[in-house]
């Protein structure tokens, strides 16, 4: 007998048991694993897609912000450059004005200094000349400068001639007022009387004479009556000297202001 019926029944049972076991241990876990994996992959793909979209939108946002930032930076740079240009122009203008002022001040100071120097030179020259003259006269003639001045003044009075003498005489007679004699230094009584004598002799006037100290006339004697003045003074000599020195100083070139102007430009 090829078919053994007990074996058939046993194999049917065996097969059914095998079906149950494989369903339990093979098909269900494998199919479940496949399904889970497919679901997870699908979920991950969806996540990745969502992330990609989010990244895309963020990138767009970033690009937009970047462009806006670039634009703003360019605007600010242009504005800053314009402001800097304006400020620079202002600074240059201010500096130019200050330099002009400084040059003006410097030139003014130079002029002042020049004037002061001229005045000082004049004063010192007068003093030196006066001192030299006094010394020379003292040493050589044995008389003081004042005595010599009075002498010289008297000589000049006597030496007056012609139209000048007539003019003065007319003036003295027309105005019989006081006759004023102004000197730098106080005169001795002899000197006063010498002057009075000479005046009376030359002009023939009898008016009383008044003597006055006047330090502003440089080492000299003035005879003043109404509207007329006769004087001898070192200032006449000094005037010539001053003129010579003044010409010498004005001949020197003034180079300073050009240098200042060059720096300011």
């Amino acid at each position: 007998m090829i078919i053994d019926w007990f074996t058939v029944i046993a194999q049917v049972v065996n097969f059914l048991i095998l079906v149950w076991l494989l369903k339990r241990f093979l098909y269900r876990p494998i199919l479940q694993a496949i399904d889970e994996r497919e679901q997870r992959i699908a979920a991950e793909l969806a996540d990745a897609n969502a992330s990609k979209l989010a990244a895309q939108s963020e990138r767009d946002e970033f690009m937009r912000k970047n462009e806006a930032f670039d634009q703003a930076r360019a605007d600010m740079t242009a504005k800053a450059m314009e402001e800097a240009q304006n400020e620079r122009q202002q600074f240059v203008n201010v500096a130019r004005q200050e330099s002009e002022q400084l040059r003006e001040q410097w030139q003014q100071a130079l002029r002042n200094e020049h004037q002061n120097l001229s005045a000082e030179i004049t004063r010192r020259t007068q003093e030196e000349v006066f001192a030299i003259a006094r010394k020379a006269l003292t040493d050589m003639a044995g008389v003081t400068l004042e005595a010599r001045m009075v002498e010289l003044f008297v000589q000049r009075l006597h030496g007056l001639e012609g139209a000048e003498r007539m003019h003065l005489v007319a003036s003295f007679k027309a105005a019989p007022a006081q006759v004023l004699v102004r000197t730098t230094y106080a005169l001795t009584p002899q000197q006063r009387s010498a002057i009075e004598d000479a005046v009376k002799f030359v002009f023939g006037v009898e008016q009383p004479m008044q003597f006055e100290l006047a330090p502003d006339i440089v080492s000299g004697i003035e005879l003043v009556t109404s509207g007329q003045k006769l004087a001898w003074s070192i200032a006449d000599y000094l005037g010539t000297l001053e003129k010579g020195v003044g010409e010498l100083l004005s001949a020197q070139p003034v180079a300073g202001p050009d240098v200042v102007s060059g720096q300011a430009a």
């Binding site: 074996t7 046993a10 194999q11 065996n14 048991i17 095998l18 494989l22 241990f25 093979l26």
Partner: peptide, 20 residues
């Protein structure tokens, strides 16, 4: 036959269990 079937069943079930 029965013994071989049992062996095959064991191999299949244990193999499936080990893998899964």
């Amino acid at each position: 036959t029965i013994v071989t079937t049992w062996v095959l069943m064991l191999v299949l079930v244990i193999g499936a269990k080990l893998v899964t």
